[in-house]
Design a protein around this nucleic acid. Structure first.
Lengths: 134, 134
DNA sequence: GTGTTTGCAAAGTGTTTGCAATTTA
DNA sequence: TAAATTGCAAACACTTTGCAAACAC
């Protein structure tokens, strides 16, 4: 018998397909890319009838990030954002309302990055284009 | 009688030169550029014999940022960093120890930024090159 | 059955705030 | 003296954690 895609995705990531994780994966990956904070995901889950505690949402976001099926985006010093798009891309950050918008990785480019200090390797290059409504 | 530079700098920024602000400006701008968090500045102040409460350090960092003599750097979702270099430049962020290193603005360049959504204007483009010790 | 995961409530961390006392102008 | 600033302690927002009950395999 064939597992559902959500279950397979979790198995592939080495995570047990618990009810909460399966439902969160379904919510997150059913329809386009998604940006979220722990609070917003918890709210969206509730609205979608998915019962999961906030603590589990936090744990899950980190497990998914560690497993590589989510990526963390640092744009705000007071909240953690996560993105279902783990591929090469960057972001607009709308400072007024805390919203993220993807910028495809093949549109934007960073040049002239100096060699990192000896003994250090580049992990990732993040670009945040901060915009505001006017 | 001529005011000291720290006092002048505060006056120019429209801030009253209180003892705390004057001493913090002296500490911050006496010798090259500096990166800090509220905690680290509070500790450095203490070590330099500057008496100032943590609450005042927080207030001061924000006032200085608002006044344009400091700039906030968002690299970590759990702490606020500030930089005495308010000019055009970017950063290396050493993920292992939470350290920042400046990248001169004339060395690095970002191209291909899409037009922001209608009704939005670009405020700033931030590049963070995340590096780690190996 | 055994090890993992969940959820609650408590604890933690970094930050902000109310307000009386102090300082600046 | 009037208005701004400070510092304390309490309050906050977000996040993590300890642990017993529930669950996956």
């Amino acid at each position: 018998m064939m597992d559902e895609p959500a279950v397979e995705r979790l198995r592939a990531a080495g995570l047990r397909p618990t009810r909460q994780r399966v439902q969160l994966v379904e919510l997150l990956f059913s329809d386009g890319h998604r940006h979220m904070t722990a609070e917003s995901l918890h709210a969206d889950a509730g609205a979608a009838g998915v019962q999961v505690s906030l603590a589990t949402v936090y744990n899950t976001l980190h497990q998914f990030t560690e497993a590589g099926i989510l990526r963390e985006v640092v744009v705000d010093a007071s909240r953690s954002y996560f993105d279902t798009n783990t591929g090469d891309h960057q972001h607009f950050f709308v400072e007024n309302d805390g919203t993220l918008i993807d910028i495809p990785g093949d549109e934007i480019a960073v040049s002239g990055i100096p060699t990192p200090p000896k003994g250090h390797a580049v992990d990732r290059v993040d670009v945040v284009v901060r915009i505001r409504k006017n």
